[in-house]
Design a protein around this nucleic acid. Structure first.
Length: 97
DNA sequence: GACATGACACACG
DNA sequence: ACGTGTGCCATGT
């Protein structure tokens, strides 16, 4: 489970972000948004957890973690408006190709 | 097995 | 846009 989710999280390219639902669906868990969060909450350094946000590009994390996420996203070129990100521009879409 | 919790998502007002 | 209630699923007690 973690492996699957993490695998898809790692597939998110730099400068882009994906929603929990998006990752969950891509990983094969249509209703596993919470499980995605569960896998990310471990703050595994090998995972780009900052690229995973809530529906609509909303930053769900709070406090130091939220700040850190915003900082890292900005560092990757993602423009964050307060607690949100433009999914129209930075929303990553998993392609089947 | 039941209950409570959690970086969620969606419908309503 | 925001707060609230409900549905979903895995984990811990």
């Amino acid at each position: 489970m973690f492996v699957e989710i993490r695998k898809f999280v790692k597939k998110i390219p730099k400068g882009k972000v994906a929603t929990y639902g998006q990752v969950a669906i891509a990983a094969g868990f249509p209703r596993g948004a919470r499980q995605v969060a569960w896998a990310l909450k471990t703050f595994d350094p090998t995972l780009p957890w900052q690229r995973v946000i809530g529906q609509g590009g909303k930053i769900l994390l709070r406090g130091a973690n939220g700040v850190e996420q915003v900082q890292r996203l900005e560092a990757e070129g993602v423009v964050v408006h307060g607690t949100r990100v433009d999914l129209k521009r930075f929303g990553h879409v998993y392609r089947l190709c």
